[in-house]
Simulated scan of single mutants.
Amino acid sequence: GALSENFLSCRMFIKNIRLLLRSSVKYPQHIYQSAALAKRSMSTEGKGPIYSSIWNVIDKQLQPTHIELVDDSAKHAGHEAMKGSTAKETHFRLKVVSSKFEGLSLVKRHQMVYALLNEQFQQGLHALNIVAKTPQEVEKR
């Protein structure tokens, strides 16, 4: 009854406030800088050489505001394409946000990342799932 109506009203109110905040709040520059610092201070310690190499190349060449790199190699170890391969780091998921992608189609963004990681592909990287966005695309969400 009345309790569930109040609950639904509160949920709608909260949802509307969230939408309003997302669309109107521009974060101060120091927040962006601290996020960039946090991203750059993330350690590749304990990660394999291909992971570290991918991270370092993407960080240096694309100067991203955000990087997520996940090693999914263990999920693919038994696959037919991996039979006979001695490479341990073969499959990754990469999410990267960089202003270097501005004005580029999705295909061109992926081609850019693949070109940057040519050496890693030669060293055993087999598959890379890429999500490549500009800061403006992320801000719109």
Rank of each mutant, 00 (worst) to 15 (best):
83 K>F: 04
62 L>A: 05
90 T>Y: 10
3 L>W: 05
68 E>Q: 12
124 G>V: 12
30 H>T: 12
86 T>E: 07
63 Q>P: 04
140 K>V: 06
96 V>Q: 00
137 E>Y: 08
61 Q>C: 15
43 S>Y: 02
108 K>Y: 01
66 H>P: 02
88 K>D: 12
23 S>H: 12
141 R>Q: 14
134 T>N: 00
82 M>I: 09
88 K>M: 07
91 H>P: 11
14 I>P: 07
61 Q>F: 02
14 I>H: 10
4 S>M: 05
135 P>V: 05
48 G>H: 02
140 K>H: 11
83 K>L: 09
46 G>P: 15
120 Q>G: 03
69 L>T: 04
132 A>H: 00
46 G>Y: 15
73 S>Q: 09
45 E>V: 13
15 K>T: 07
98 S>P: 01
50 I>S: 05
60 K>Y: 02
62 L>D: 03
47 K>M: 11
13 F>A: 14
124 G>T: 11
100 K>E: 11
26 K>I: 08
29 Q>D: 04
86 T>W: 04
138 V>I: 15
2 A>D: 10
22 R>K: 13
108 K>C: 02
80 E>V: 14
80 E>F: 15
129 N>Y: 06
134 T>R: 00
25 V>L: 15
128 L>W: 03
13 F>M: 09
89 E>V: 14
35 A>C: 11
53 S>F: 00
19 L>A: 12
129 N>M: 14
119 E>H: 07
49 P>Q: 12
65 T>A: 07
112 M>S: 07
39 K>C: 14
118 N>Y: 04
18 R>C: 11
41 S>P: 04
67 I>G: 06
34 S>P: 02
81 A>M: 13
